[in-house]
């Protein structure tokens, strides 16, 4: 996957990437899906809002599908993160192994860091 890495070659070490080129979260980190309820076209299912998951991997930077839905694509890209949430954290009465997980990709604007998870 293409993402910004610090260059090995010292001639390129002074390159400063733009903010949205650098992922805010890293694999292994815990994140919370924001609990907000805007109207319109949104790509975060209701059942996941407010849930905490672990970042499994970063996904290639992409434009914001939600803005695009309203014709507001200004060409700015941010990262998607594929996160894993334990099924038993989503459904209190989940019938199945406690190791079962839900995996989903969530756009950066919908996540916040969890520091005590």
């Amino acid at each position: 996957m293409r993402q910004h890495l610090p260059p090995d070659d010292p001639r390129f070490i002074r390159i400063v990437p733009a903010l949205q080129e650098t992922p805010i979260f890293q694999p292994g980190q815990h994140v919370r899906v924001l609990e907000r309820f805007p109207l319109g076209h949104y790509r975060v299912p209701l059942y996941l809002r407010g849930r905490i998951g672990g970042v499994e991997r970063l996904v290639l930077p992409a434009i914001d599908n939600e803005e695009e839905g309203f014709g507001l694509n200004a060409g700015v890209k941010r990262h998607y993160y594929r996160i894993a949430v334990p099924m038993s954290d989503i459904w209190t009465d989940y019938a199945g192994s406690s190791r079962d997980q839900l995996y989903i990709e969530v756009f950066e604007t919908w996540l916040e860091a969890v520091h005590d998870a």
């Binding site: 790509r43 975060v44 299912p45 996904v59 992409a62 599908n65 998607y80 594929r82 894993a84 099924m87 989940y94 019938a95 199945g96 192994s97 190791r99 079962d100 997980q101 839900l102 995996y103 989903i104 990709e105 969530v106 756009f107």
Partner: peptide
């Protein structure tokens, strides 16, 4: 309830096998 759903397809997943449900929501 992925396990109950899978059972209706005739797919019995043992408890020691982890189920990972991928909910695809946008570009993937």
């Amino acid at each position: 309830e992925p396990r109950a759903l899978l059972a209706e397809f005739g797919t019995i997943i043992p408890d020691d096998v982890e189920i990972r449900v991928a909910d695809s929501t946008s570009a993937l």
